[in-house]
Design a protein around this nucleic acid. Structure first.
Lengths: 165, 165
DNA sequence: AATATAGGTTCCTTTTTAGAACTTGTCAAT
DNA sequence: ATTGACAAGTTCTAAAAAGGAACCTATATT
């Protein structure tokens, strides 16, 4: 598979990875969620080369995840801010952080704690069914081909969708 | 920042990306969740080079996300299966798929639909607070430094954590 | 006139990835 | 007994991506 064709694949995961699936993009977005907006601050915090940072920011803007917003004129300076589309990546970020908290922490535990403003407690994210509200694990979900994709995904879903134990 | 030091960063997102944050790893894991277990099947489905596939599988095994399990002897053949640690990445996968379904689909809609076995309905994932059960968005969460990290993350969290609008 | 700032671009080197051919141990067919 | 197939790699060379440093542009400050 060619990397440039990833956003044309018949798979939403592949299409999302066309946007965020490289070495740096999710770290840039992490900083965006921390409130970082300016080129030089991203550069310093991440230790990314300017060339790559320029490229990734352009890509994120072109996909509508970030948008440029002027914060001064003469000379024109713009900052990069999360769009609504970008803000909706929050569950992904939270999922990655939560897995890292559990499986990649050292003896000091989680570096950052998340407080739910509404209830005031330290929280971690929990994934639920949109329909019944129950918590979900991999074994609770069955996959099938979407109505408009019948016959086009025959070899994508293996015959034996296999319980993954 | 050096890429090899990513799993030592004081950030759970960075540490998780040390495991899954490259071009191919999440696509390999997607196939694992679809029930794929063998080297040649990964290779054919992904169009990945054998060299890189070997490398990524080794890495995933070394981090305990996959484990090798013999399915025949003479000659010894092993397959790659998701460990419990790997299965716990499901919320991340689901989050990426869901975002792609919403933002990257063409006119045919989502290629794959998810049915919640318990309630029988087509579902999408919803992220909730582990403590009160409410649904969560980026604006509902406040970040702060973990107890054992006081004073070590001063420049990680910007002074003004900024609402991300 | 010299320096600083923000946001880049250019150039060259090093690291990764792509693509194809080769390897190893075993079994099945000629 | 030889040939070919299979699964899971390893080894090569070439192309693409990333790293690192220097340079550029418009404006404002000293």
């Amino acid at each position: 598979m060619r990397w440039e064709d990833l956003d044309q694949q018949p798979c939403s995961l592949a299409r999302t990875l066309a946007v965020v699936g490289d070495r740096w993009t999710l770290l840039i977005l992490r900083d965006s969620f921390l409130g970082i907006r300016r080129f030089d601050v991203f550069e310093q915090r991440l230790g990314i080369t300017r060339h790559v940072l320029t490229d990734r920011l352009k890509k994120l803007v072109s996909y509508g995840v970030l948008y440029k917003s002027p914060y001064q004129e003469r000379p024109l300076r713009e900052e990069y801010r999360l769009s609504d589309k970008g803000l909706e990546l929050y569950p992904v970020i939270l999922g990655l952080v939560s897995w890292g908290d559990k499986h990649m922490s050292d003896e000091r535990g989680a570096p950052i704690v998340h407080t739910h403003k509404t209830c005031g407690l330290h929280m971690h994210p929990s994934t639920h069914c949109s329909e019944c509200g129950d918590a979900i694990t991999a074994k609770d979900v069955k996959l099938s081909v979407g109505v408009n994709w019948q016959g086009h995904l025959d070899e994508f879903l293996p015959k034996k969708p296999a319980t993954q134990t």
